[in-house]
């Protein structure tokens, strides 16, 4: 019985990564965070590079936890931090918390149809009304393809 308790204790301790400074998902380096406003202002300087962004988690994929949306240092600027399904999963409880997210800064070009489908899907997922007029043409979406994040 004693050995079973010991085994279970080891399993539990080796489980979720709860660093003293927050909850860690995946791997995060010690690199200095770049402001989101800087990424938005000069996207070409960062495309394809691994960057760390600090921000407020304004939305979470409620079904799979496979993305979070970060609000940056300035109003009206957000970026989606997308992780591979099953590799990292964010609980909904992280919404409204501060986060440092690290990933590859990526540009995705969408046709109008793709942009429309994406906006519709997002509206449905978050149960918000969808206005097709909000998509006026082809668009480019910037993403951080996730490596890891620390939520505080």
């Amino acid at each position: 019985m004693r050995s079973m308790i010991g085994f279970c204790t080891v399993l539990c301790l080796a489980g979720p990564s709860l660093a003293a400074g927050g909850q860690t998902f995946g791997k995060v380096s010690d690199a200095k965070a770049v402001k989101l406003s800087e990424l938005v202002a000069k996207p070409a300087d960062y495309l394809g590079k691994t960057v760390k962004v600090e921000g407020l988690i304004t939305d979470v994929c409620s079904k799979r936890g496979c993305w979070i949306r970060l609000g940056g240092d300035k109003e009206f600027q957000t970026i989606t931090f997308k992780v591979e399904d099953g590799v990292i999963s964010f609980p909904m409880s992280v919404k409204g918390k501060r986060c440092e997210a690290e990933g590859v800064f990526t540009k995705v070009d969408l046709t109008q149809e793709e942009a429309l489908a994406r906006a519709k899907h997002e509206a449905e997922e978050s149960k918000r009304p969808f206005d097709p007029k909000s998509v006026t043409g082809p668009t480019a979406v910037y993403l951080l393809k996730g490596v890891g994040a620390v939520v505080r």
Partner: peptide, 23 residues
């Protein structure tokens, strides 16, 4: 007052409380 607040658009305000939020 909420713990955090953010605007994704000038007219849309998101307010974050412990475990729940308002848009």
């Amino acid at each position: 007052p909420p713990k955090e607040a953010f605007r994704s658009r000038p007219e849309v305000v998101e307010l974050f409380y412990d475990g729940w939020s308002v848009r």
